[in-house]
Simulated assay, not measured.
Amino acid sequence: MFEFRLGVDDLATTWFAHSPLQETVLSLRARRSAARYPEQQAWIAGWQSRYETLDTELLESLIAPVGFVPDFLTPRPVGPRPDFSTELGRLARTPAEVVRADVIAAYRSDGGVLPPVLARLVDDPAALTARVAEALEAYWTRCLAPVWWPRARSVLEADIAHRGRMLSERGAEGLFAGLDDRLSWQAGVLRLDDPHPAVRAVGASVDVAGRGLVLIPTLFGLGAQTDITQVGPPLICYPARGRATMGEGLTGAHRGAPGGPLAALIGAPRARLLALLETPASTTELAHRLGVTPGAVSRHLGALTAAGLLDRSRYGRSVLYRRSRLGDELAGGRS
């Protein structure tokens, strides 16, 4: 179990971020565990031929058998929306002794042995870091950045917008309680209880002590997790809401519009949008999920917002829409 002790000032400096580098690294889990990440498999199939041209031996060694990754691969974001190149630059500057220690710690905690490629390079951390940075940059550029990341980013930003709403409505206790079942909050202590014996064995008690706790949604977590070593500033990654929607729009299975009285009242396209917007989403994401143009979606969103059925909020460069309380009542949902 990990325990994070937060004072009042620490709560005031708890913040959210998403990380393109973290998602790049953790996406390799979905290749190994297809059954655990079914929503990602159509994406993976789509870029398979490009992936096979990469340094796959190294990329696939970065995920230890039960899913651990060396901590240096997922540095804590320095801002809420870092760009990939900035994060990769920080990774490339990781001190050699940290790289070596993190690789060994990840596999030791996992109970596995180093794969041949890591065994050859672990005693030359500078060469290992350079090769990792090159492999991740190629993977990002050829497979993830063109189409997958814009979609993934909209899901992550929608999650963060939702968490902000929960914090304003329910306070810190309600926020932490809603992040993941592994997390619990009591008397200034946030506990992360992972059921895996290897994780419990490396548990720690952490004083946030003015360093700020960052909360990071991910599409590739089966539960909340944190750094193995706890050397750097504290962070917790947790499964993002809406991650299952990553599979929508790729097979056409979700493009139909609901029928019934609501569709008769406001039209099938608007009824479909209202059904989708139980969780926040951007115009671009909705267009992708429905297989239509952003312009077509935008016109319907404007009408639904003007009718008081949707709320809109800005997060960074994105405008996110979500059903209002009136929209919830009309759609038969819950607030």
Rank of each mutant, 00 (worst) to 15 (best):
A177F: 01
G178E: 11
G178S: 15
D180Y: 05
D180M: 06
D180V: 07
D181R: 15
R182M: 06
R182C: 03
L183D: 00
W185V: 02
A187W: 01
A187Q: 13
L190D: 02
L190I: 14
L190G: 01
L190W: 05
P195L: 07
P195S: 06
H196W: 12
P197S: 09
A198Y: 09
V199C: 11
R200K: 15
A201L: 13
V202F: 03
G203N: 04
G203I: 04
G203P: 04
A204S: 13
A204F: 05
S205H: 12
V206D: 01
D207C: 03
A209E: 11
A209R: 12
G210N: 02
R211Q: 14
G212C: 07
G212N: 04
V214N: 01
V214H: 00
L215P: 01
L215Q: 04
L215K: 03
P217D: 01
P217W: 02
P217R: 00
P217T: 02
T218C: 12
G221S: 14
A224E: 01
A224P: 06
A224V: 08
Q225G: 11
T226Q: 05
T226Y: 05
D227K: 12
D227G: 10
I228R: 09
Q230N: 15
Q230M: 14
Q230L: 09
Q230A: 15
G232Q: 11
G232N: 09
P233L: 03
P233H: 07
P234K: 06
I236V: 14
C237V: 12
C237K: 08
Y238C: 01
A240H: 03
A240L: 04
R241A: 09
G242C: 09
R243L: 10
R243Y: 09
A244K: 13
T245D: 10
T245H: 06
T245R: 15
T245Y: 06
M246N: 04
M246W: 06
M246H: 05
M246E: 08
G247K: 00
G249T: 04
G249S: 02
G249Q: 00
G249R: 01
G249K: 00
L250G: 04
T251K: 10
T251S: 14
H254F: 15
R255C: 10
R255K: 12
G256R: 13
G256P: 00
A257K: 08
P258K: 11
G259R: 09
G259W: 09
G259F: 10
G260H: 09
G260C: 05
G260A: 07
P261G: 12
P261E: 14
L262A: 07
L262E: 06
L262D: 05
A264N: 10
I266R: 10
G267Q: 08
P269H: 12
R270F: 10
A271D: 05
A271I: 03
L273S: 01
L273P: 00
L274N: 09
L276V: 10
L277S: 05
E278R: 15
P280T: 01
A281R: 07
S282G: 10
S282L: 03
S282D: 04
T283L: 08
T284P: 02
E285V: 08
E285D: 13
L286E: 06
A287G: 10
H288Y: 11
R289V: 11
R289L: 14
L290A: 11
G291T: 06
G291L: 11
V292C: 13
V292L: 08
V292T: 14
T293N: 05
T293H: 14
T293L: 12
P294V: 04
P294Q: 02
P294K: 05
